[in-house]
Design a binder for these strands. Structure first.
Lengths: 331, 331
DNA sequence: GTTTATTTCGGAACCGGTTCCACTTATTGA
DNA sequence: TCAATAAGTGGAACCGGTTCCGAAATAAAC
């Protein structure tokens, strides 16, 4: 591997001149040619460590992700990655396997490695997060959750909840089980439910019950089975697509046909909801686009430009077979 | 951020002594204490760039992955990541979005960044790959494909194909459509098919036709639709779970019931095959475990220890509802 | 009580870049 | 034509570590 000194010697100039050439300083035409040729010959490319050592900064954005094996995560990562590449930045992923401790460790570790900025695919913001972010003094961007101290990019959970509520009501459903998650997750556990509630409040005579379950499919399936027997809802409005999948499994095992005997909706727009049969009606979020926006924003922040504190990413209701139109059913 | 010089001053010693302390050289008890305290006070941690600059090497394993949004990829990455963490290495992911050019670029880029080793989740090994790997002189490990020049970790595609063939025959199927992929992918396109063929050769009177499609669901769906009309197979043996999902979609849209009118099998063991209804019978590979083994192996190679050239990861046939037992059907 | 071997430690060079500063040369203006 | 200004270049210091080497201090050997 050749160094800048090799190039300098080959071109017959000082290494400071080569450096200036590389970084766009003033260099004469003749020397430019010589340096260019030397670089061609050797295939030289600067040692990034030496650069970062001097610059005290890298062009890497550390991205903390709670899990790699989720549709939302991977789509978001893809968006971030592609956009960062275009902006000449790199993405470094830290997978925390849903361990909040590791998120904190990753923050400090990223700081130690002089990351230019940090993106956190957030599920929950604790005091430790706040403390860590404030002590490292690196630009931070949250995706998926908002917090007054930090810039963030969120999905339009409230409006999606509202739209989903309206959709369900329009289709004629009135006996509704809302299967949500913990309220520690503001976006998924609180916002979606609040939006949904507002839609419900606009009609009368509605029998809605709110339940809480976990994010994984088996837990959702167990909860659903219980609710089916106890409440006998006409529809499950689930806070995530995975929960909706759990409901689907429960209804198969109970011999209930969807959408004839029971309807289901989700949130997320995961690929799988369109692959299976019946397809699940869901509020699709644009994860990849959100990732792209996040990448653009963190780079802006790194370069000390201003960015809106909160950016809201859009959604879209996708209608599939898991919800019937009760009003058009033959009596 | 404090430097090694700050620590040296605080402890009243030379920075070489601090460095020796950090790297386990000979340091007196008294000075040890002083340095320890200075480090405690400042929360010092060495600048990794300065270290790498001198060492000309990092403890990072570059991992090249063709796509992030696939079950196999993310499971493998999780396995690699977890194991590398335990071995005090880091993983850096480069997503190439199924672009072979980018794989080559990533190889050179990793070399430039002085990665300790490279893991490639391979789909196809071209001459350019070989040239790149040989010129960078960094330990390399292939996952998913084998090549005589490199160490590799592969899934037991041939045996899985054979086992799947036996399974299908045992269930009484004789009119079979094998829906495979391009033979440029040795593991998926060649090995699985070969194993399957061997099983077929062991029986007589078998009407098997081999087809080729792409890896994505819509393409598989289109192919399946055509084959259904043209050949009317009793079962589709698909080279991947995604292709099996395509067949499922095609049969829904054609009004064919699975497994009553048509059976389907896949390869991979993707989560989704167990979530949907009917579940798909598949040959499950152990991606996460494979990733863990890969991580162990690349670290061995980095440390110049010997590793078997080819390691074969196991599989398991998972029986689900998508295949019926024809022999037990009431006539 | 020397001599020799061992341990501990500081100084300096080095890794491969960037940047400041001073010097030379060319250009411009009066 | 000469001073003032700008452009181009080299030298040296610096970023924050590691490592080699030799000196000093301590321990062991005789």
């Amino acid at each position: 591997m050749s160094t800048i000194l090799d190039i300098a010697k080959l071109a017959g100039v000082a290494k400071s001149t080569v450096s200036r050439y590389l970084n766009g300083g003033s260099v004469g035409e003749a020397t430019k040619k010589k340096i260019e040729q030397a670089i061609q010959e050797t295939g030289y490319s600067p040692n990034p460590f030496a650069q970062s050592l001097k610059a005290k900064k890298t062009n890497i954005i550390g991205t903390i992700v709670p899990r790699l094996d989720s549709y939302a995560s991977s789509q978001t990562l893809i968006g971030i990655d592609e956009q960062l590449k275009k902006l000449n930045y790199q993405m470094l992923i830290s997978n925390t396997s849903q361990n909040l401790e590791r998120e904190i460790e990753s923050i400090y570790s990223f700081a130690n490695q002089k990351m230019a900025g940090i993106i956190l695919l957030a599920t929950e913001i604790t005091d430790q997060h706040i403390q860590a972010f404030e002590s490292v003094k690196i630009p931070v961007l949250l995706i998926g959750q908002e917090h007054k101290n930090f810039h963030s990019l969120i999905h339009d959970d409230y409006d999606a909840g509202y739209a989903m509520g309206q959709y369900v009501l329009e289709k004629g459903y009135r006996k509704i089980a809302y299967l949500g998650v913990t309220e520690r997750d503001i976006s998924v556990g609180v916002k979606r439910k609040q939006g949904f509630k507002r839609a419900i409040q606009e009609v009368e005579d509605c029998d809605v019950r709110f339940y809480e379950t976990l994010f994984n499919i088996p837990a959702a399936q167990a909860s659903a089975k219980e609710i089916i027997h106890e409440f006998k809802p006409a529809i499950f409005v689930c806070a995530t697509d995975n929960i909706a999948l759990g409901v689907l499994k429960a209804s198969y095992s109970e011999g209930i046909t969807i959408p004839r005997d029971l309807a289901v909706t989700g949130f997320g727009g995961y690929d799988v909801t369109g692959i299976i049969h019946p397809g699940i009606t869901t509020a699709k979020f644009f994860y990849k686009e959100a990732g792209e926006t996040a990448a653009r924003h963190i780079v802006e922040l790194v370069n000390e430009r201003t960015v809106e504190k909160i950016t809201v990413s859009k959604f879209e209701i996708i209608e599939r077979e898991s919800v019937d139109n009760l009003l058009k059913r033959p009596l």
